[in-house]
Amino acid sequence: MITIICFLKHLIDIVILFFLLRLWIYFTINNYYNFFVKYIILLTNVFLKNIQKFIFKSNKSEILSFILILLLIFLKYPILILIQSKNLFFHSLLFFIFISIITLLKFLGYLFFWLITIYLIFNIFHIKNNDLNDILDIFIHQILKIIRFFLQNFYNINILLFIINIILYFLNNLFMDLFPQFWFLI
Rank of each mutant, 00 (worst) to 15 (best):
M1E: 05
M1Y: 15
I4F: 06
I4Y: 12
I12V: 13
I14W: 14
I14Y: 03
I16L: 01
F18Y: 14
F18S: 02
F18P: 00
F19V: 00
F19R: 00
L20N: 07
L20C: 07
R22A: 02
L23S: 12
L23R: 08
L23V: 05
W24R: 02
I25C: 06
T28D: 11
N34Y: 04
F35R: 13
L42V: 02
L42T: 12
T44N: 13
N45W: 05
N50I: 08
N50D: 11
N50K: 12
I51L: 13
I55L: 12
N59K: 13
I63D: 08
I63M: 12
F66C: 15
F66R: 03
I67W: 08
L68Q: 00
I69T: 03
L71P: 00
L71N: 02
L71C: 09
L72P: 04
L75G: 03
L75S: 15
L75K: 05
K76N: 09
L82F: 10
S85W: 06
S85Q: 15
K86M: 05
F89T: 14
H91Y: 12
S92M: 10
S92L: 07
S92D: 09
S92R: 14
L93P: 01
F96A: 05
F96H: 06
I97T: 15
I97V: 15
I99C: 08
S100G: 11
I102W: 00
I102L: 11
L104Q: 01
L108M: 13
F113R: 01
L115K: 01
I118T: 07
L120C: 14
N123G: 12
I127N: 01
D131Q: 13
D131W: 09
L132S: 01
N133Y: 08
N133L: 04
I135Q: 03
D137P: 04
F139P: 00
F139R: 01
H141C: 04
Q142M: 07
I143C: 09
I143E: 05
L144S: 05
I146W: 06
F150I: 15
L151M: 10
Q152T: 09
F154N: 05
N156D: 15
L160H: 04
L160C: 03
L160V: 08
F162M: 09
I164G: 06
I167Y: 02
L171E: 14
N173W: 08
L174W: 11
D177L: 08
F184L: 15
L185T: 10
L185E: 07
